[in-house]
């Protein structure tokens, strides 16, 4: 069994102590554990984010396995529980907080007040807009990294990260909409998820 200090020292060798310490002292929330969220969270725990808040109300079903980071044996389980188990297999030293509920304007404060950085990973466009507006209107110190436009089979490198305000980043191609007949495929959604996770580590690296 690898000890926590062995895990930490190996990561410090890779990222340096400064970035390691920032990651250990940051709480990141992943809102929605589908194709985006289930791929964002493992990247974050690998990069040393110690405290993760995972939020989703859904269970894993068979069609999720084609693009979401779950196992066939997870079908029927709550996404929060299945993902938490997967993350603790990557790193048993993480602090994983799960909330098995739908995020609305009425419960955002109780779910996200502890989060420093929020990854918006919903599939519904209205929910995306609601969360982004709410966070930016109510929490001037939190960062939000949202995703819009990752469906379909267009080029992966049309997916970009843009900084909209000091604390609002937007990943995606901005246009590929599941509501306009584009389906989601594992590879392109994972590219967008990686953009969001990479945005987290870049924000941490720039923190004073």
């Amino acid at each position: 069994m690898i000890s926590q200090s062995e895990w930490n020292n190996a990561l410090i060798e890779r990222h340096g102590r400064d970035l390691f310490n920032k990651a250990q002292n940051t709480t990141v929330a992943v809102c929605g554990l589908g194709g985006l969220g289930s791929n964002i969270a493992p990247l974050l725990i690998r990069m040393g984010i110690k405290r993760l808040i995972l939020i989703d109300f859904d269970k894993v079903d068979l069609t999720n396995i084609h693009r979401q980071n779950y196992l066939l044996s997870d079908v029927g389980r709550l996404k929060t529980e299945a993902l938490k188990d997967g993350l603790l297999k990557i790193c048993p030293f993480g602090e994983i907080i799960t909330h098995n509920e739908k995020i609305t304007e009425d419960n955002i404060h109780s779910l996200l007040s502890e989060a420093d950085i929020i990854c918006e990973a919903f599939d519904n466009a209205e929910c995306k807009a609601m969360l982004v507006n709410y966070i930016l209107e109510h929490y001037p110190k939190k960062y939000i990294i949202s995703a819009s436009g990752m469906a379909g089979l267009n080029e992966a490198d049309l997916i970009k990260t843009r900084r909209i305000t000091d604390r609002f980043y937007l990943c995606g191609d901005g246009v590929s909409d599941i509501d306009k007949g584009f389906s989601l495929c594992a590879s392109r959604v994972a590219v967008c998820a990686a953009h969001q996770a990479h945005c987290v580590i870049r924000i941490l690296n720039e923190l004073k």
Partner: peptide
């Protein structure tokens, strides 16, 4: 001004 218009998928 920038208007960000979200599309579905995730």
């Amino acid at each position: 001004l920038e208007v960000v218009s979200f599309v579905g998928g995730g």
